[in-house]
Nucleic acid binder design. Sequence first.
DNA 1: GTGGAAGCCAAACAATCGTTTGTTTAAACT
DNA 2: AGTTTAAACAAACGATTGTTTGGCTTCCAC
Lengths: 208, 208
Amino acid sequence: MGFDIKPAQGRRRTAGTAASQRQNNRRHKVLAAAAKLFAAKGLSGTSMRDIASATGMLPGSLYYYFPSKDELFLQVHADAVADIDARVVEALEGVSDPWERLEAAAGAHLEGLLRRDGTVAIVQPHFDDQDPELAQRLRVQRDGYEARFGELVAALPLAQEEDRRLLRLLLLGGLNWATLWVKEGPDRQSPAEIGRAFVGLIRRQVGV
Amino acid sequence: MGFDIKPAQGRRRTAGTAASQRQNNRRHKVLAAAAKLFAAKGLSGTSMRDIASATGMLPGSLYYYFPSKDELFLQVHADAVADIDARVVEALEGVSDPWERLEAAAGAHLEGLLRRDGTVAIVQPHFDDQDPELAQRLRVQRDGYEARFGELVAALPLAQEEDRRLLRLLLLGGLNWATLWVKEGPDRQSPAEIGRAFVGLIRRQVGV
DNA sequence: GTGGAAGCCAAACAATCGTTTGTTTAAACT
DNA sequence: AGTTTAAACAAACGATTGTTTGGCTTCCAC
């Protein structure tokens, strides 16, 4: 079951541009609304009617763009992963020191996660293991991204032997969990600050 | 009908005990099954029928023990928090060094989280903010527990000024997230090992 | 202008949801 | 003994779920 019917793509002629432009606008609008709702209420907590009414459409109309709720969710997830990955790549540009690279990546990662509006904050699981097939497809989407952090951690110069895997998991866990406690408001720490602080706590001598 | 000043307890006959025993058994069975399902599939991902069939009962019968699905979930959540809190308290007994105390607490916390069977692994949010009232009641249940980690972190001797709040959040985030990647099998690291490793990564000098 | 596809609505589908109701069974108390 | 009460079943309630179907527009290509 691959991509049998990819609606309205590769339209011929100039008209296709305008038409698919509007289509993409609509489609993108659905994806944005779905991302917001999925991030806030989960997969089974969000109904197709919720998404439809958030985009000013009717439930059935969504099926013109996406063949099923699961496929819609997978697309949202894929977009989110791609977006956050792009942020990290961009943040790494021009940074050469390994620890600084990790700091930059951590900040970009968290910043991407916190974009609950706009794109998404769904790089995290917790989204209904109900269907094992869906769960696996989601994992595949994430694996590529997480490998990037593996490389960053592998490049770190360490004072002594450490379990680099646990180092990566501690940092990523702390960052992913941060989406649950970072609050809005003026005294809110920026994602970059938090990322730098976390990396610093690991890097430096903290205890006496 | 006057007031019968009846001691709802201290039945002379063993019958009263036996009855409430069976009641508690059944009720506990429901709680256990619900905990397992909620932990695996989330609140909205688990139906009352799922819970009923897992306990060998009919859907309607659950309402003899719990007035609603939300109340059942709250009870499961409360039990989970109490259980993991007790684990942490027990693990702290006889340990006096602040860093060792944090290590012990971290291990016990993770061990409690990983008990997906038996008790639960629901100290974490991600469970449908849908109903704000429910979300708040869940938060209240968790706040008391998390305060314990605040005390442990406050007692740490630090090499220099650090943001103790971020230290706590990094560690707890890493631990909570661990429930998603800790695998079964022979080469699986124990919760205590992971907790000690995480605390060590923060405490020691890691970078060069 | 005519044909036909793109885009969306309107309405309904069967299935499942949380919950309620009335009744039965079995045990316990008097 | 007779009465009460806890515990569960059996069946249905209305609401909501994901999804399907058919038709109505709109607009471009010819």
